[in-house]
């Protein structure tokens, strides 16, 4: 499946605001570090994402891009 939500991990500061804003509770901090030393936010259950973009709108670091399936 093509991802609905994509994180530019190098820009992420692990602040967790996107986690608190996600209505589906699918965002978590990954068990790895980016080059700044932060645990980047990520989503594994892409199929549960509803493309609401709440995460993108609350992210202070413009880390997130959101897509939705095109209606046929």
């Amino acid at each position: 499946m093509e991802p609905r939500v994509v994180f530019n991990e190098e820009l992420c500061k692990g602040c967790s605001l996107c986690i608190s804003a996600c209505p589906k509770n699918i965002i978590y901090l990954a068990d790895r570090l980016n080059s700044k030393g932060y645990r980047p936010a990520t989503v594994t259950e892409q199929d549960k994402c509803i493309s609401c973009a709440a995460c993108g709108r609350i992210c202070p670091d413009a880390v997130i891009t959101v897509y939705r399936p095109k209606k046929k």
Binding site: L11, C15, S16, S51, T65, V66, P69
Partner: peptide, 22 residues
């Protein structure tokens, strides 16, 4: 096929900010 809903604006430069997390 996917369509774009939300992306980083071109009104900002590419530079990462120095602001504290959050």
């Amino acid at each position: 096929m996917m369509e774009l809903v939300f992306e980083r604006t071109n009104g900002l430069t590419e530079k990462p900010t120095h602001y504290c997390p959050g």
